[in-house]
Nucleic acid binder design. Structure first.
Length: 468
RNA sequence: GGCGACAUAGCCAAGUGGUAAGGCAGAGGACUGCAAAUCCUCCAUCCCCGGUUCGAAUCCGGGUGUCGCCUCCA
C-alpha cells in the first residue's frame, strides 16, 4: 500500500510516487534567523521531522534540505536595532535554532544552506527569468511579471483577478501589477549587498528557495513543505519562479502544517503571546512538547497552553511507565514460554498493521498514538498476568516501541541497566524491614531514595526501581 | 468582497455511509502495610434544520458559530 499525502496543490490525498524511488527529495522552508524560533515554528519542524523519519521507516531514501533565510528586511532591521551586523545576527540565531530543535529532538537536515551562500545561484535564476520574459527591471529592482504566468494562483487556488481585488497598492510602486514581487532589490545605504548585472543589491525573499532547491535537487522536488501561511504568497511565488526560469513544476507534493494558536488566540507580537522554544524548554519537558504537537493531525489548527502541555505530559508518562516496567521485567525474564503470550502476540501484530495504516494515511499521528496506547494496555496486562516472563516476547514488544520511537521520539527507552550497589543494598535493607513489618524504616528508605530520584514499586515479583 | 478550513464528552483528539479509537481529568472497584504502577467498570448519539439512504458524525442543501488566507507572520 502506498503512502497517501494531502497535496495542497490538488486539495486531495494522493499516493506518494517519487520521481526516482527510493529517493525522496524533500525541501522544508526554514527559519528567518532574526530571533528565537517560537512554538509555532517548532510545530512545523517537528511535524516534518516525523514525516521524514516515517518515510525512512517505510524504506525511502530521504534527502532533506532546509534553508536558513539570513538576509531580508527583518534581518536588516533587527541587526540595526541591536547594533550588530547581519551576519553576526544570523550566526547567533542559527546557533540558537540548532540548540532549540536539538532539544526538541528534531534531526538536522542533510543540507542546511543559507541564502547568502547562494547569491550566484539566485542571480543565475533571475537571469533565466529575464531571458524568458518572466521578469522585468524597474528602476534598479527586478520584479517577477505575474501577468506572464497564467497559472499564478494555482497553489492558493485564487484567480489572479480575485487576488488583485484584495491586493493593496502602495504609493510609488515600481511594479507593473500589485501581484508582482521583487526578485532583486536595489541596494539602500547601509544594507548588505552583492554585485549583480543589475547593480548592487540583495535578493528578494522568495527567490532563495527556488534557487537553493534547484542547486541541491536539480529537478522537480518530491515534497515541498512549510507552514500554512507560506502558501501565499511565498510558495506561490516559488512555483512561478521555477516555472518561469526552468519550465518545470517546483514540487510534486505540497505539504502545509496547520497553525498553532496560543490559548485560542493567534500568536502575535502585538498580543505579546509569542512563546519561544528557548523559554518553553526550560519550563517543560521537550518530549511533552513533542507529544502535544503530534497528538493532533498536522493539518489541523492546534491550540497551545501550559495546561495542554501538562495534559500531554500525563499521557506520555503512561507510555514512559509502561516501557520502564517492560525493561524491568526483562531482568528476570526467561527463554521459555509461560503460557500467556498469545494475547500480547496478537495485540502486537494488530498494532503493527494499524500503525502503518494510520501513518500511511497522510501521517495520522493522532491515530497512531491510539495504537501505541492500546498496545501499552496489552503490555501492562501481560506484565500482570504473564509471569514468568518470556524474554523474546518482551524484546519483541520493546522492539516495536523502539521502532515507533525512532519516528516519534516521545519516550526515553534506555537499555536495561545493572543495579547500583548502594541502591541495591538499600533496597535489600528495606525488603528486610518490610518482611519484619518495620514499615517506619521501610518508608524512611523509600523516602531517601525518592530524594535521590529513585522511585520504588513493590510488585508481586519483587521490588522494582526506576528513575523519576 | 473573493477563496478556504473547522464545529465530536469537563479538556485534548481519531474516525468520510453500517449503529462513536485513544489520552487527560473524574467516579467506583481490585491489588498494596501504606504508596507507586497497573488492571476492571462507569462517563458523548457527534452545532442546528431539512433532504438522500434500509441505514449518516460521515453524502447533499440551508442556517449558526469559530478561524485562516487575500499585507515578504511557520
Amino acid at each position: 500500500m502506498a503512502i497517501k499525502i494531502y497535496n495542497t496543490l490538488t486539495r486531495r490525498k494522493e499516493d506518494l510516487n517519487p520521481g526516482a524511488p527510493p529517493l525522496v527529495t524533500f525541501y522544508v522552508c526554514g527559519p528567518t534567523v532574526y530571533d528565537y524560533i517560537h512554538i509555532g515554528n517548532a510545530r512545523v519542524f517537528i511535524i516534518f521531522d516525523v514525516v521524514r523519519r516515517y518515510l525512512e521507516y517505510r524504506g525511502y531514501d530521504v534527502k532533506l534540505v532546509q534553508n536558513y533565510t539570513d538576509i531580508d528586511d527583518k534581518m536588516i532591521n533587527r541587526a540595526n536595532e541591536q547594533g550588530i551586523s547581519v551576519p553576526e545576527l544570523a550566526e547567533r540565531f542559527i546557533q540558537a535554532y540548532l540548540e532549540d530543535v536539538s532539544a526538541l529532538r528534531v534531526r538536522p537536515a542533510d543540507a542546511t544552506p543559507r541564502a547568502t551562500e547562494h547569491i550566484d545561484d539566485i542571480i543565475e535564476l533571475i537571469e533565466r527569468l529575464l531571458k524568458n520574459g518572466f521578469a522585468y527591471i524597474s528602476d534598479g529592482d527586478v520584479y517577477y511579471d505575474t501577468a506572464k504566468y497564467s497559472d499564478y494562483g494555482q497553489l492558493s487556488h485564487q484567480k489572479q483577478d480575485d487576488l488583485l481585488m484584495g491586493a493593496r497598492v502602495e504609493p510609488g510602486e515600481k511594479k507593473r501589477s500589485p501581484l508582482d514581487f521583487v526578485l532583486w532589490k536595489q541596494k539602500k545605504e547601509g544594507e548588505p549587498s552583492w554585485d549583480s548585472p543589475w547593480g548592487e543589491g540583495r535578493p528578494g525573499w522568495h527567490i532563495e528557495c527556488s534557487a537553493m532547491s534547484t542547486h541541491f535537487m536539480d529537478d522537480t522536488l518530491d515534497i515541498h513543505a512549510g507552514g500554512a501561511d507560506l502558501i501565499f504568497p511565498h510558495h506561490e511565488n516559488e512555483i512561478a519562479q521555477t516555472w518561469g526560469a526552468d519550465r518545470r513544476p517546483l514540487a510534486r507534493y505540497w505539504m502545509h502544517a496547520g497553525y498553532l494558536n496560543i490559548e485560542d488566540q493567534k500568536m502575535s507580537k502585538s498580543l505579546g503571546n509569542v512563546r519561544t522554544v528557548h523559554e518553553l524548554v526550560k519550563e517543560y519537558d521537550p518530549l511533552d512538547l513533542r507529544f502535544l504537537i503530534l497528538s493532533a493531525h498536522y493539518r489541523s489548527p492546534l491550540n497551545f497552553s501550559g495546561e495542554l502541555v501538562v495534559q500531554a505530559g500525563s499521557g506520555r508518562q503512561r507510555l514512559q511507565e509502561m516501557v520502564a516496567n517492560m525493561l524491568n521485567a526483562l531482568e528476570d525474564a526467561g527463554e521459555s514460554a509461560g503460557g500467556h503470550e498469545e494475547k500480547l502476540e496478537n495485540a502486537l501484530s494488530e498494532a503493527r498493521s494499524r500503525f502503518t495504516g494510520a501513518m500511511d494515511d497522510d501521517f495520522n499521528t493522532a491515530d497512531a498514538f491510539g495504537v501505541l496506547f492500546d498496545l501499552a494496555r496489552s503490555c501492562n496486562i501481560y506484565l500482570k498476568e504473564g509471569h514468568p516472563y518470556n524474554r523474546p516476547l518482551l524484546e519483541e514488544a520493546l522492539g516495536f516501541y523502539r521502532e515507533m520511537n525512532e519516528i516519534f521520539e516521545i519516550v526515553d527507552i534506555s537499555t536495561p541497566r545493572g543495579l547500583d550497589d548502594e541502591i541495591n543494598s538499600m533496597i535489600a535493607e528495606r525488603d528486610q524491614a518490610r518482611a519484619s513489618k518495620d514499615f517506619a524504616t521501610a518508608d524512611r528508605i523509600r523516602d531517601e531514595l525518592q530524594q535521590r530520584g529513585i522511585v520504588l514499586e513493590d510488585t508481586p515479583h519483587g521490588t522494582r526501581w526506576k528513575k523519576k
